[in-house]
């Protein structure tokens, strides 16, 4: 139907998250139809990203500089580190603009079923950061899942003697949430974490 190059383009696009063969075909066609305004700039941008974007050696974030802009920003509070599973979670935290500290990306969660153990995560790097002495509080912003909380408890154990405050994100009723629509687990977690008004 199409040339080998177009087929290869569709095949590669279809591997991207959220895309299947049909949407990959639509994107390939759109790119080829608007070569100058879409395809060429995209190729240049992707080439530039491939050449310049690195993983921050301090926190594990993606950036074109190493250490990343967040780690280098002196206006941020270096005494508080937020531990997240992946860069997408870091971006989610940044979107809130509520957190002014620094981050640490673990690169995953402990998961016996997927064979991911402590050595596969960047926990030693976090311990090394904490031991350097600047960090006073570690906020564990990991998923409220069995794997997420198992990882959180494991990190808490490892940091127990480090002399830092360890906190975790609250679990419970989301903003705009109605009790009637929440699952039992969320309601019981919210009830356990109730606070005086």
């Amino acid at each position: 139907m199409a040339g080998a190059e177009i087929e290869a383009l569709i095949r590669h696009l279809a591997k991207l998250p959220g895309l299947g063969p049909r949407s990959a075909r639509r994107i390939a066609l759109a790119l080829l139809k608007k070569r100058e305004t879409m395809l060429d700039p995209l190729v240049r941008t992707m080439m530039a990203a491939a050449e310049t974007v690195k993983i921050c050696s301090s926190c594990g974030n993606f950036d074109s500089q190493n250490p990343c802009a967040i780690c280098e920003d002196n206006r941020r509070d270096a005494s508080i580190v937020c531990v997240v599973e992946g860069v997408s979670d870091l971006w989610a935290m940044e979107r809130t603009t509520a957190f002014k500290g620094r981050y640490h990306v673990t690169g995953g969660l402990l998961s016996p079923i997927d064979g991911i153990g402590p050595d596969d995560l960047k926990i030693d790097l976090l311990l090394a950061r904490v031991r350097r002495g600047e960090v006073k509080e570690v906020v564990l912003a990991l998923s409220a899942t069995v794997d997420g909380q198992t990882t959180a408890h494991y990190i808490t154990d490892r940091l127990k003697d480090a002399g830092v405050v360890i906190s975790g994100l609250a679990h419970g009723v989301p903003v705009g949430g109605e009790l009637d629509y929440l699952d039992d687990g969320t309601i019981s977690a919210a009830l356990k974490a109730r606070r005086p008004m």
Binding site: V146, T150, D183
Partner: peptide
């Protein structure tokens, strides 16, 4: 969902470890 045992023990490291171990 009928009952969420995981949510009930999520904040307790020992109980969560026991639940994970039993299931595994």
């Amino acid at each position: 969902l009928v009952r969420s045992h995981s949510a009930e023990v999520m904040s307790d490291p020992g109980r969560l470890a026991a639940l994970s171990s039993a299931c595994a």
